[in-house]
């Protein structure tokens, strides 16, 4: 049975010592779509994100992934089910080369990761696939460069390549454009558009131009709860959404 919605939450709530960061959020992400989560600062987007990937435990509510209740699963388990996240601050392994970064993701699924008596040359058989993935995000030339020496935008692309290596069903991108210049934004946006043909994507993003051009559906959060949901054109007409953004100093 395939559900229409790959990810669903019911009454998702997170309290931090009396402060409710996320309140009763019901989110439904349609399979194959690009779904964006937006809202002013402090609206609970990142908290919500951490709840979905199990990096935080919800205070109440349930999370279903492919119809399966994942509320009580460990973060590494969720990743193994095919729900893989990125991080707001670029998450690469700085002193590994781009190729090695991708290979670390490939090697997990194929075993040998506990083999401390083998030479790492057994990992060379993943090089072909790793190069393919690097090529897919336009990083072939950086294969042998340590991630720490790569420009910021390229690190984000590397992060996506590493995520793709897990062959996920769904990707959660936490502010993929944060801290980037124009060129990088265009490149990463094109990349996200391209990979969305194969994967469902849920992203948190501040850059409204990016959200407008990429997303099929947008959920607006304010003060921890869902304010509105719809496509970009509908939402721009919504009085409450305009108010929430203007009130928070965005325009």
């Amino acid at each position: 049975m395939t559900n229409e919605f790959i990810l669903e939450t019911h009454g998702l709530t997170k309290e931090f010592a009396g402060f409710v960061a996320v309140r009763d959020v019901g989110l439904r992400v349609r399979r194959g779509s690009i779904h964006a989560l937006i809202g002013p600062n402090g609206a609970g987007k990142t908290t919500c994100f951490n709840l979905l990937t199990k990096f935080l435990k919800p205070s109440a509510g349930k999370i279903f992934y492919n119809g399966r209740d994942i509320t009580a699963r460990a973060p590494a388990d969720v990743a193994r089910l095919g729900l893989v996240r990125s991080f707001q601050i670029s998450a690469v392994f700085p002193h590994l080369t781009a190729l090695e970064n991708v290979r670390v993701a490939l090697q997990r699924q194929h075993g040998h990761s506990f083999d401390f008596w083998r030479s790492k040359s057994v990992l060379d058989r993943f090089n072909g696939r790793a190069l393919e993935l690097l090529d897919e995000v336009g990083l072939s030339e950086f294969a042998k460069t340590p991630a720490v020496e790569m420009p910021y935008g390229r690190k984000r692309a590397l992060e996506i390549a590493t995520t793709l290596a897990l062959d996920p069903e769904m990707m959660l991108l936490d502010e993929p454009m944060a801290g980037m210049g124009h060129e990088d934004i265009d490149r990463i946006a094109a990349l996200i558009k391209r990979i969305s043909a194969k994967y469902t994507i849920l992203m948190v993003e501040h850059n409204l131009n990016v959200v407008a051009s990429l997303s099929d559906i947008i959920t607006v959060l304010t003060r921890g709860h869902v304010l509105a949901e719809g496509n970009y054109a509908d939402l721009t007409k919504d009085e409450r959404v305009r108010e929430a953004y203007l009130g928070a100093g965005h325009g």
């Binding site: 990937t53 401390f116 057994v122």
Partner: peptide, 23 residues
């Protein structure tokens, strides 16, 4: 310098990311 060593270095460099890759 083993497959295990690679994962270990990855964990040292960024444990959260290693978890998010399913380790």
């Amino acid at each position: 310098n083993s497959p295990f060593g690679e994962v270990l270095k990855a964990i040292r460099e960024n444990e959260q990311r290693a978890i998010s890759l399913g380790y």
